[in-house]
Design a protein around this nucleic acid. Structure first.
Lengths: 223, 223
DNA sequence: TGACAAATGCGTAAAAAATACGCATACTTT
DNA sequence: AAAGTATGCGTATTTTTTACGCATTTGTCA
């Protein structure tokens, strides 16, 4: 291994996170606007370069903090993008992740050293992203839909004290289709990814049971 | 993006393929012995560095050819390994793949520019591999077992003209457990990953139907 | 030859999981 | 009081998975 061999030096690693949320029934993704070339003023998924001394997971955490101010969320690796020309300046491999968070609970920075804006967009209305992020986003949506019930990937959207009807509506928003309310309940309760967490008494409504996701790792997905 | 920034230059990409086979009922993996430092004389999974101008898929094909002489097999991406110290000389990210092939149908090179030996090993007896390949192999085995029926990942093991009992026995070898013969048949025929491909008349046996995998891509797996 | 074993293929019965949907209760609005 | 909505639970039906019986072809061996 010759570390100066031009065949395989000057390679970089991009970290990309498709950060999803459900905002008043709308399935959305967080995009940031680039301040510099390449793709100046283009919207892209949250991410940046992985440093030499960090794992892709730690690099992803750092990038999320730097570019959006968001901390403390889990994510799930779902793909690798390696077209040599996907980034114009040098060869950048991309490692792609998914998160689902509550947009009400985070304060997203709109100005950082490298970004000039940040905004939640409805998935259907997103196109023309910088780099190959249109493709990455499409794959992320597909992956999320396939795995929404096989893990606690929604844990960051509903950390605790959520009702089943709430989780039901969010799941419908993400999948983009109706799910029978009573079967949804049965399914969630038969798998052991959530557990009871108290009772909610709200004015104007019948009191509802509260749940929380169990403390398993997010990562026991298919990948 | 400053291509000379030491924070994220001098990074390399390793490509690793866990090449599996079933050899007379034994589930095996192909290992190669390194000729040079680091990990001189250690057994490792097949692989090497990805060049700047190739996708990870094309790089993986090239590395398989160079290190083993094997060509024309499909593989499936299943993981990324990014511990900064997983390779001693410089930061090497690893992108990991799986293939399942027929060891009878390939001629494996035992001497190449960078390898001094190559051999099929029974999975259970493998340990002490170079780099982090023990971990990668364990993950690959787990991934393969989880996905053996949800794709045509075994297409390279049985390209065509195989009988169901043959596929059944290979599947049992890989999973390491018995599967009911009649339910296996029913399951495979109900999914549409194989189709009829003639009749086999063998001396000494009842004639058997032949099958082949359908022409879908290997890549419609969970990942 | 006839009994037996092995390999292949097909079917049926029971168990488990997924789906469709009825209905009771609590609380509001009108 | 009647109607409407949100919550929770149950039951009937369908589909999928699992367990296993049995027929047919062919070879082996007493």
């Amino acid at each position: 291994m010759d570390i100066n061999n031009p065949l395989y030096s000057k390679q970089g690693i991009h970290l990309v996170n498709a950060l999803f949320t459900v905002d008043r029934g709308k399935f959305k993704v967080l995009l940031i606007k680039r301040k510099n070339q390449p793709y100046k003023d283009k919207w892209i998924l949250v991410g940046g370069a992985c440093y030499n001394n960090e794992t892709v997971e730690n690099g992803m955490k750092r990038e999320m903090q730097e570019k959006t101010g968001i901390t403390g969320v889990d994510f799930q690796l779902f793909g690798v993008y390696s077209n040599p020309n996907r980034s114009p300046l040098m060869r950048m491999l991309a490692v792609a992740f998914i998160s689902v968070i509550d947009c009400e609970k985070v304060k997203v920075l709109t100005q950082t050293q490298k970004t000039s804006d940040a905004e939640w967009f409805e998935i259907d209305k997103v196109k023309g992203l910088g780099y190959d992020h249109d493709e990455i986003l499409a794959d992320a949506v597909k992956y999320l839909k396939n795995n929404i019930f096989s893990s606690n990937i929604l844990k960051n959207l509903f950390p605790h004290n959520f009702t089943l009807p709430l989780l039901h509506k969010a799941s419908e928003s993400i999948l983009g289709k109706k799910i029978d309310r009573r079967n949804f309940r049965k399914k969630l309760l038969s798998t052991h990814i959530i557990e009871e967490d108290g009772i909610l008494t709200q004015k104007g409504k019948k009191s509802a049971k509260l749940y929380k996701f169990c403390e398993n790792d997010v990562e026991n997905l298919k990948f």
